[in-house]
Amino acid sequence: MSGANQRALVLLVAGFTIWSVGFVALYALQALGCAFGWPQHRAILIGAYVVSLLPLIWLAMMKTVREGEPATSLSVAALWANRAALASGVLVFLPVTFVSACI
């Protein structure tokens, strides 16, 4: 497998891997906050929401091919997958802003 191919393959799953980590982290923070009765539970959740979106934004804006290399099917798919991961992060984590955390 060529280097460009390998890079594209890693980029293809990078966005959604970060999405998965963010998903688990938010679910854990929700549960821990309820178990220990954190007073700033909502603020922590919203903070984690923003933090989890930062790497997704960075990936979605990143070029998936290096300068001078032609875009392959794989690099284009990687770009779209990362944008989809960002959209999924924005939408799936959005409920932290308004939904009851502990009932």
Partner: peptide
């Protein structure tokens, strides 16, 4: 072709959520 690849990857991950 390319958007289907992205869709498959998205499905693979989303299905764990």
């Amino acid at each position: 072709y390319r958007s289907i690849i992205a869709a498959i990857v998205a499905m693979g991950f989303l299905s764990f959520g």
